[in-house]
Amino acid sequence: MIHVENLTKYYSDLCAVDCIDFDIHKGEVLGLLGPNGAGKTTVLQMLTGFLRPTSGSIRVKDLTIEENSLQIKKLLGYLPEDAPLYHDMLVYDYLDYVADIRELRGSKKLSRIRYLADICGLHEVMHKPIGELSKGFKQRVGLAHAMMNDPEILILDEPTSGLDPNQIVEIRGIIKQIGKEKTVILSTHILNEAEATCGRVLIINRGKIVADGTTETLRQAGSGDYIINISIENAILQSVEKELTSIDGVIETTHVDNDEDVLNLKLTCRSSRDLRGEIYRKIKETDWALLELYQETQSLENIFRELTTEN
Protein backbone atom coordinates (compact mmCIF):
# COMPACT_ATOMS: atom_id res chain seq x y z
CA MET A 1 0.00 0.00 0.00
CA ILE A 2 2.67 2.47 1.07
CA HIS A 3 6.30 1.99 0.23
CA VAL A 4 8.89 4.28 1.78
CA GLU A 5 12.49 4.18 0.69
CA ASN A 6 15.53 6.05 2.03
CA LEU A 7 13.33 8.80 3.35
CA THR A 8 15.42 11.64 4.75
CA LYS A 9 14.49 15.08 6.00
CA TYR A 10 16.81 17.87 7.08
CA TYR A 11 15.60 21.06 8.73
CA SER A 12 18.50 23.26 7.65
CA ASP A 13 21.31 21.40 9.48
CA LEU A 14 19.19 19.30 11.77
CA CYS A 15 18.54 15.78 10.59
CA ALA A 16 14.97 14.94 11.63
CA VAL A 17 14.52 11.74 9.66
CA ASP A 18 17.50 9.68 8.63
CA CYS A 19 17.20 7.20 5.75
CA ILE A 20 14.04 5.38 6.78
CA ASP A 21 12.65 2.40 4.86
CA PHE A 22 9.38 0.66 5.56
CA ASP A 23 6.29 -0.80 3.93
CA ILE A 24 2.72 -0.56 5.11
CA HIS A 25 0.20 -3.10 3.89
CA LYS A 26 -3.48 -2.72 3.35
CA GLY A 27 -5.59 -3.13 6.46
CA GLU A 28 -2.72 -2.64 8.87
CA VAL A 29 -2.91 -0.47 11.96
CA LEU A 30 0.62 0.82 12.33
CA GLY A 31 1.81 2.63 15.44
CA LEU A 32 4.70 5.02 15.15
CA LEU A 33 6.38 5.17 18.52
CA GLY A 34 9.22 7.22 19.78
CA PRO A 35 10.32 9.78 22.33
CA ASN A 36 9.54 13.45 21.75
CA GLY A 37 11.50 14.89 18.87
CA ALA A 38 12.22 11.48 17.37
CA GLY A 39 10.80 12.46 13.99
CA LYS A 40 7.36 10.87 14.14
CA THR A 41 5.44 13.95 13.06
CA THR A 42 7.96 14.70 10.33
CA VAL A 43 7.50 11.21 8.88
CA LEU A 44 3.72 11.62 8.93
CA GLN A 45 3.89 15.08 7.39
CA MET A 46 6.00 13.72 4.57
CA LEU A 47 3.55 10.86 4.01
CA THR A 48 0.72 13.37 3.64
CA GLY A 49 2.71 15.45 1.17
CA PHE A 50 2.73 18.47 3.47
CA LEU A 51 6.51 18.40 3.82
CA ARG A 52 8.79 17.67 0.94
CA PRO A 53 11.46 15.04 1.75
CA THR A 54 15.08 16.13 1.41
CA SER A 55 15.70 12.83 -0.34
CA GLY A 56 14.11 9.43 -0.72
CA SER A 57 10.81 8.36 -2.14
CA ILE A 58 7.29 7.63 -0.97
CA ARG A 59 4.95 5.55 -3.09
CA VAL A 60 1.29 5.12 -2.30
CA LYS A 61 -0.15 2.35 -4.46
CA ASP A 62 1.36 3.25 -7.83
CA LEU A 63 1.54 6.96 -7.16
CA THR A 64 4.58 8.95 -6.14
CA ILE A 65 4.32 11.96 -3.93
CA GLU A 66 6.28 14.27 -6.25
CA GLU A 67 4.14 13.65 -9.31
CA ASN A 68 0.71 12.67 -8.02
CA SER A 69 0.41 14.52 -4.76
CA LEU A 70 -3.16 15.58 -5.53
CA GLN A 71 -4.34 12.00 -6.17
CA ILE A 72 -2.55 10.81 -3.03
CA LYS A 73 -4.21 13.55 -0.98
CA LYS A 74 -7.55 12.24 -2.20
CA LEU A 75 -6.76 8.79 -0.77
CA LEU A 76 -5.63 10.14 2.58
CA GLY A 77 -7.31 11.42 5.68
CA TYR A 78 -5.05 13.28 8.06
CA LEU A 79 -5.46 14.52 11.60
CA PRO A 80 -2.53 16.72 12.63
CA GLU A 81 -1.36 16.93 16.22
CA ASP A 82 -3.73 18.97 18.44
CA ALA A 83 -6.31 19.20 15.63
CA PRO A 84 -5.64 22.78 14.52
CA LEU A 85 -9.04 23.82 13.14
CA TYR A 86 -10.68 27.13 12.25
CA HIS A 87 -11.81 28.46 15.60
CA ASP A 88 -14.40 30.90 14.32
CA MET A 89 -16.34 28.37 12.28
CA LEU A 90 -19.30 26.36 13.49
CA VAL A 91 -18.73 22.61 13.54
CA TYR A 92 -21.40 22.03 10.93
CA ASP A 93 -20.08 24.78 8.63
CA TYR A 94 -16.61 23.36 8.95
CA LEU A 95 -17.64 19.81 8.09
CA ASP A 96 -19.73 21.18 5.22
CA TYR A 97 -16.67 23.01 3.88
CA VAL A 98 -14.49 19.92 4.18
CA ALA A 99 -17.17 17.89 2.39
CA ASP A 100 -17.19 20.47 -0.42
CA ILE A 101 -13.44 20.29 -0.81
CA ARG A 102 -13.67 16.49 -0.76
CA GLU A 103 -16.17 16.78 -3.60
CA LEU A 104 -19.20 15.33 -1.88
CA ARG A 105 -22.48 16.71 -3.16
CA GLY A 106 -26.10 17.02 -2.16
CA SER A 107 -27.65 14.17 -0.25
CA LYS A 108 -24.40 12.22 -0.22
CA LYS A 109 -22.77 15.10 1.63
CA LEU A 110 -25.54 15.33 4.20
CA SER A 111 -25.63 11.63 4.90
CA ARG A 112 -21.84 11.52 5.24
CA ILE A 113 -21.83 14.42 7.71
CA ARG A 114 -24.64 12.77 9.65
CA TYR A 115 -22.79 9.44 9.72
CA LEU A 116 -19.58 11.07 10.97
CA ALA A 117 -21.49 13.06 13.58
CA ASP A 118 -22.91 9.73 14.76
CA ILE A 119 -19.69 7.80 15.10
CA CYS A 120 -17.70 10.73 16.48
CA GLY A 121 -20.53 11.81 18.80
CA LEU A 122 -20.79 15.35 17.49
CA HIS A 123 -24.54 15.93 17.38
CA GLU A 124 -24.69 18.07 20.51
CA VAL A 125 -21.96 20.47 19.36
CA MET A 126 -22.91 20.74 15.69
CA HIS A 127 -23.91 24.40 15.97
CA LYS A 128 -21.18 25.64 18.28
CA PRO A 129 -18.05 27.48 17.19
CA ILE A 130 -15.04 25.15 17.15
CA GLY A 131 -13.08 27.52 19.38
CA GLU A 132 -15.55 27.02 22.22
CA LEU A 133 -15.28 23.23 22.24
CA SER A 134 -13.35 21.22 24.80
CA LYS A 135 -10.20 19.52 23.66
CA GLY A 136 -11.89 16.15 23.35
CA PHE A 137 -14.58 17.51 21.07
CA LYS A 138 -12.03 19.36 18.94
CA GLN A 139 -10.15 16.11 18.53
CA ARG A 140 -13.36 14.40 17.45
CA VAL A 141 -14.13 17.14 14.94
CA GLY A 142 -10.60 16.64 13.63
CA LEU A 143 -11.26 12.92 13.36
CA ALA A 144 -14.50 13.56 11.48
CA HIS A 145 -12.54 15.88 9.18
CA ALA A 146 -9.97 13.18 8.52
CA MET A 147 -12.61 10.56 7.74
CA MET A 148 -14.77 12.77 5.52
CA ASN A 149 -13.72 11.18 2.24
CA ASP A 150 -13.84 7.63 3.66
CA PRO A 151 -10.08 7.47 3.12
CA GLU A 152 -8.21 4.30 2.32
CA ILE A 153 -5.36 5.49 4.49
CA LEU A 154 -5.96 7.32 7.73
CA ILE A 155 -3.04 9.14 9.30
CA LEU A 156 -3.42 10.32 12.88
CA ASP A 157 -0.79 12.29 14.76
CA GLU A 158 -1.15 11.67 18.51
CA PRO A 159 -4.91 11.19 18.28
CA THR A 160 -5.44 10.78 22.01
CA SER A 161 -3.07 13.36 23.47
CA GLY A 162 -4.74 15.56 26.04
CA LEU A 163 -7.93 13.54 26.29
CA ASP A 164 -9.44 12.16 29.47
CA PRO A 165 -9.47 8.39 30.00
CA ASN A 166 -13.08 7.97 28.83
CA GLN A 167 -12.44 9.90 25.66
CA ILE A 168 -9.26 7.91 25.04
CA VAL A 169 -11.22 4.68 25.21
CA GLU A 170 -13.83 6.12 22.82
CA ILE A 171 -11.26 7.33 20.29
CA ARG A 172 -9.40 4.03 20.46
CA GLY A 173 -12.67 2.26 19.81
CA ILE A 174 -13.24 4.38 16.73
CA ILE A 175 -9.71 3.73 15.48
CA LYS A 176 -10.09 -0.01 15.98
CA GLN A 177 -13.38 0.07 14.13
CA ILE A 178 -11.82 1.87 11.17
CA GLY A 179 -8.73 -0.30 11.28
CA LYS A 180 -10.81 -3.35 10.36
CA GLU A 181 -11.14 -2.19 6.76
CA LYS A 182 -8.69 0.67 6.31
CA THR A 183 -5.02 1.28 6.71
CA VAL A 184 -4.35 3.38 9.77
CA ILE A 185 -1.06 4.98 10.75
CA LEU A 186 -0.92 6.67 14.11
CA SER A 187 1.85 8.20 16.10
CA THR A 188 1.98 8.18 19.85
CA HIS A 189 4.37 8.17 22.74
CA ILE A 190 1.95 6.34 24.96
CA LEU A 191 2.91 2.68 24.88
CA ASN A 192 -0.34 1.23 26.16
CA GLU A 193 -2.03 2.91 23.28
CA ALA A 194 0.20 1.25 20.73
CA GLU A 195 -0.42 -2.04 22.48
CA ALA A 196 -4.17 -1.54 22.60
CA THR A 197 -4.72 -0.37 19.06
CA CYS A 198 -1.84 -1.25 16.76
CA GLY A 199 -1.19 -4.53 15.04
CA ARG A 200 2.31 -3.45 14.20
CA VAL A 201 4.67 -1.03 15.88
CA LEU A 202 7.52 0.98 14.47
CA ILE A 203 9.82 2.51 17.06
CA ILE A 204 11.74 5.56 15.90
CA ASN A 205 14.60 7.21 17.71
CA ARG A 206 16.58 10.18 16.44
CA GLY A 207 15.19 9.81 12.97
CA LYS A 208 16.03 6.11 12.64
CA ILE A 209 13.89 3.00 12.92
CA VAL A 210 15.10 0.99 15.90
CA ALA A 211 12.40 -1.66 15.98
CA ASP A 212 9.68 -2.93 13.69
CA GLY A 213 7.18 -5.69 14.41
CA THR A 214 4.09 -6.68 16.33
CA THR A 215 4.08 -5.93 20.02
CA GLU A 216 4.60 -9.68 20.60
CA THR A 217 7.73 -9.94 18.49
CA LEU A 218 9.09 -6.79 20.07
CA ARG A 219 8.72 -8.36 23.51
CA GLN A 220 10.67 -11.38 22.42
CA ALA A 221 13.29 -9.18 20.82
CA GLY A 222 13.99 -7.74 24.26
CA SER A 223 16.94 -9.07 26.24
CA GLY A 224 15.15 -12.34 27.02
CA ASP A 225 15.24 -11.85 30.76
CA TYR A 226 12.00 -12.09 32.60
CA ILE A 227 10.96 -11.58 36.16
CA ILE A 228 9.11 -13.85 38.60
CA ASN A 229 7.63 -12.40 41.76
CA ILE A 230 7.15 -14.56 44.81
CA SER A 231 5.87 -13.97 48.34
CA ILE A 232 6.80 -16.44 51.06
CA GLU A 233 5.78 -16.68 54.67
CA ASN A 234 7.61 -18.34 57.49
CA ALA A 235 11.10 -18.16 56.00
CA ILE A 236 14.48 -16.52 56.45
CA LEU A 237 15.81 -14.34 53.69
CA GLN A 238 19.29 -15.82 53.50
CA SER A 239 18.15 -19.41 53.14
CA VAL A 240 15.50 -18.49 50.58
CA GLU A 241 18.05 -16.68 48.45
CA LYS A 242 20.45 -19.62 48.75
CA GLU A 243 17.84 -22.19 47.78
CA LEU A 244 16.38 -20.27 44.86
CA THR A 245 19.64 -19.22 43.22
CA SER A 246 20.59 -22.88 43.12
CA ILE A 247 17.93 -23.34 40.45
CA ASP A 248 19.47 -23.29 36.99
CA GLY A 249 18.29 -20.14 35.18
CA VAL A 250 17.66 -17.89 38.15
CA ILE A 251 20.30 -15.21 37.91
CA GLU A 252 19.48 -12.89 40.71
CA THR A 253 17.10 -12.46 43.58
CA THR A 254 16.12 -9.06 44.81
CA HIS A 255 14.46 -8.55 48.11
CA VAL A 256 11.64 -6.10 47.59
CA ASP A 257 10.26 -5.56 51.08
CA ASN A 258 9.23 -7.27 54.27
CA ASP A 259 5.70 -6.87 55.37
CA GLU A 260 5.53 -8.45 58.79
CA ASP A 261 6.43 -12.09 58.26
CA VAL A 262 6.11 -12.14 54.50
CA LEU A 263 9.15 -12.01 52.25
CA ASN A 264 8.60 -10.47 48.81
CA LEU A 265 11.22 -11.31 46.21
CA LYS A 266 11.84 -10.58 42.57
CA LEU A 267 13.72 -13.28 40.67
CA THR A 268 15.43 -12.30 37.47
CA CYS A 269 15.48 -15.33 35.22
CA ARG A 270 17.23 -16.03 31.97
CA SER A 271 15.95 -19.24 30.54
CA SER A 272 13.97 -20.54 27.61
CA ARG A 273 12.12 -22.87 30.04
CA ASP A 274 9.31 -21.87 32.31
CA LEU A 275 10.89 -21.92 35.76
CA ARG A 276 7.73 -21.54 37.80
CA GLY A 277 7.23 -25.27 38.31
CA GLU A 278 10.78 -25.80 39.48
CA ILE A 279 10.55 -22.90 41.89
CA TYR A 280 7.34 -24.29 43.31
CA ARG A 281 8.82 -27.77 43.80
CA LYS A 282 11.86 -26.28 45.49
CA ILE A 283 9.68 -24.39 47.93
CA LYS A 284 7.47 -27.45 48.51
CA GLU A 285 10.48 -29.32 49.92
CA THR A 286 10.75 -26.81 52.75
CA ASP A 287 8.22 -25.73 55.32
CA TRP A 288 7.79 -22.23 53.88
CA ALA A 289 4.33 -21.12 52.94
CA LEU A 290 4.06 -19.89 49.38
CA LEU A 291 1.55 -17.03 49.19
CA GLU A 292 2.08 -15.79 45.68
CA LEU A 293 4.03 -16.70 42.57
CA TYR A 294 3.61 -14.96 39.23
CA GLN A 295 5.61 -14.12 36.14
CA GLU A 296 5.84 -10.52 35.04
CA THR A 297 5.51 -10.05 31.32
CA GLN A 298 8.38 -8.04 29.93
CA SER A 299 6.68 -4.69 29.51
CA LEU A 300 6.85 -2.76 26.31
CA GLU A 301 8.03 0.16 28.36
CA ASN A 302 11.25 -1.62 29.23
CA ILE A 303 11.88 -2.50 25.62
CA PHE A 304 11.12 1.03 24.58
CA ARG A 305 13.53 2.40 27.14
CA GLU A 306 16.22 -0.06 26.09
CA LEU A 307 15.85 0.80 22.44
CA THR A 308 15.62 4.55 22.70
CA THR A 309 18.27 5.33 25.29
CA GLU A 310 21.17 3.06 24.45
CA ASN A 311 22.59 5.15 21.62
Binding site: Q45, T48, G49, F50, L70, K73, K74, L76, Y78, P80, D82, P84, L85, Y86, H87, V98, I101, R102, E103, H145
Partner: peptide, 12 residues
Protein backbone atom coordinates in the same frame (compact mmCIF):
# COMPACT_ATOMS: atom_id res chain seq x y z
CA UNK B 1 -2.98 28.12 14.49
CA UNK B 2 -1.53 25.34 12.33
CA UNK B 3 -4.68 24.93 10.24
CA UNK B 4 -2.38 25.57 7.26
CA UNK B 5 -1.39 21.92 7.61
CA UNK B 6 -5.02 20.80 7.46
CA UNK B 7 -5.67 23.02 4.45
CA UNK B 8 -2.70 21.74 2.46
CA UNK B 9 -3.30 18.07 3.20
CA UNK B 10 -6.72 18.29 1.62
CA UNK B 11 -6.82 17.72 -2.13
CA UNK B 12 -6.09 21.31 -3.14
Amino acid sequence: TGSYEILLTMPV
